[in-house]
């Protein structure tokens, strides 16, 4: 079976997985700090950052996109502590936050090598 490498940069662990594996299946076992609540794509808690290999992940569904949008405001609030909210907001708009660098770990499947980190 074809393999892919998933690297969790926060714990510095790389897992060799069969293609099609979801991030949720392995992130807790390696102790990565990607947190979960509902585990089925509703709550948006398991948001993570794609550092490398977004092209090697399953396409983003309409439902996942909606949840990411709902989380957007909350994330912004969390990052308010950075004190430079305007710069952050501009950066996120520039970089097309949704579907590009951030995904839900319970939804995203891996089809090639990726590097991920908790947000």
């Amino acid at each position: 079976m074809a393999k892919a490498k998933v690297t969790f940069s926060d714990v510095n662990v790389t897992v060799n997985v069969p293609v099609g594996t979801r991030i949720i299946e392995i992130s807790e076992a390696v102790g990565s700090y990607i947190a979960y609540n509902c585990r089925e794509g509703d709550c948006g808690v398991c948001l993570f950052e794609v550092i490398k290999g977004k092209e090697n992940m399953s396409a983003i569904s309409k439902e996942e996109k909606a949840v990411l949008l709902a989380r957007y405001q909350e994330i912004m609030d969390g990052w308010r502590a950075t004190k430079d909210i305007d710069a952050l907001q501009a950066k996120m708009q520039r970089e097309n936050f949704i579907g590009k660098n951030c995904r839900l770990a319970c939804q995203t499947q891996v089809f090639g090598d990726v590097v991920v980190a908790p947000l």
């Binding site: 490498k5 662990v13 790389t14 299946e25 392995i26 076992a29």
Partner: peptide
């Protein structure tokens, strides 16, 4: 080491990882 972010990199197969869990 995890606290300081200096832990050594590790590579593991998914099957081994899940079996150990």
């Amino acid at each position: 080491e995890h606290l300081m972010g200096v832990n050594a990199p590790r590579v593991i197969d998914m099957a081994t990882l899940l079996a150990s869990r």
